[in-house]
Amino acid sequence: MAMGKKSNTGAAASAEAQGGIDYTGKKIGMWLFLFTELLFFGGMFLLYSVFRSQYPVEFHAAAQEENLLLGSINTTVLLTSSFTIAVAIAAIRKGSKVLSLYMQTATIIFGICFLIIKYFEWSAKIAKGIYPDSPALLDRGKGDNLFFGLYYVMTGIHGIHVLIGIIVIAIMFVYTRRGVIDRDSFAKLENTGLYWHFVDIVWIYLFPLFYLIT
C-alpha cells in the first residue's frame, strides 16, 4: 500500500517536472469539452437547417425582420473580444502582467456590451409581440414560429455561454492579479481563451443564419 502511494507520488512529480505532459493534458481536456459543446450546438443547427429547408419562404421573410445593424455591431464586438483575449494570453506568456489584465478587462467589457445589445434586440422584438407562444406569433403560422423559436433558443443559449465566459474571465483576472496565473502557469487563462473563441465561432455561424440568409 505504502509502495503504491510512493510510486503514484513519484509519477506525479515526474509529470510535474516535465511540465509539458501536464500542460498537454489540461489542453486536451478543454478541447474534449469544446467538442461536446460543438455537438450540443450542432443539434440546434441541425434543427434550423431542416426547418429552413421545409419553410424557406417563411424563414426568408422572418430573417428580414432582424436588426442587421445591431447584429453586425454585435459580431464586431465579439470578434474584437476574441482578439483581446488572444492578446491577454500572449501578454502573460511574455510576462506582461499589466497588459494581460487590461486585455482581460477589455474582453469582459466587450462581453457585457454584447449582452446589452442583445437585451435591446430581444426587448424590441418582445415589444412587437414576437416571443415564443405569443398571440401575435401564433397567428403567423408554423414557419415564423419555428424561425423565432429557434432564434430565441439559439441566441439565448449562446448568450448564457457569453455570460459564463464573462464570469470565468473575471475569475482569471483575479488569478492573474494574485499571481496564480503567470508566464510559467497560464493553462487556466489559455483554456478560458479557447472557450471564449469557441463561443465566438458559434456566433460567426448564428449571425448569417438569422440576420443575413434571406
Partner: peptide, 9 residues
C-alpha cells in the same frame, strides 16, 4: 513546480 510552458513549440 508549476510549469505550463510548452517547450516543444
Amino acid at each position: 513546480m508549476r510549469m505550463d510552458r510548452d517547450t516543444s513549440q
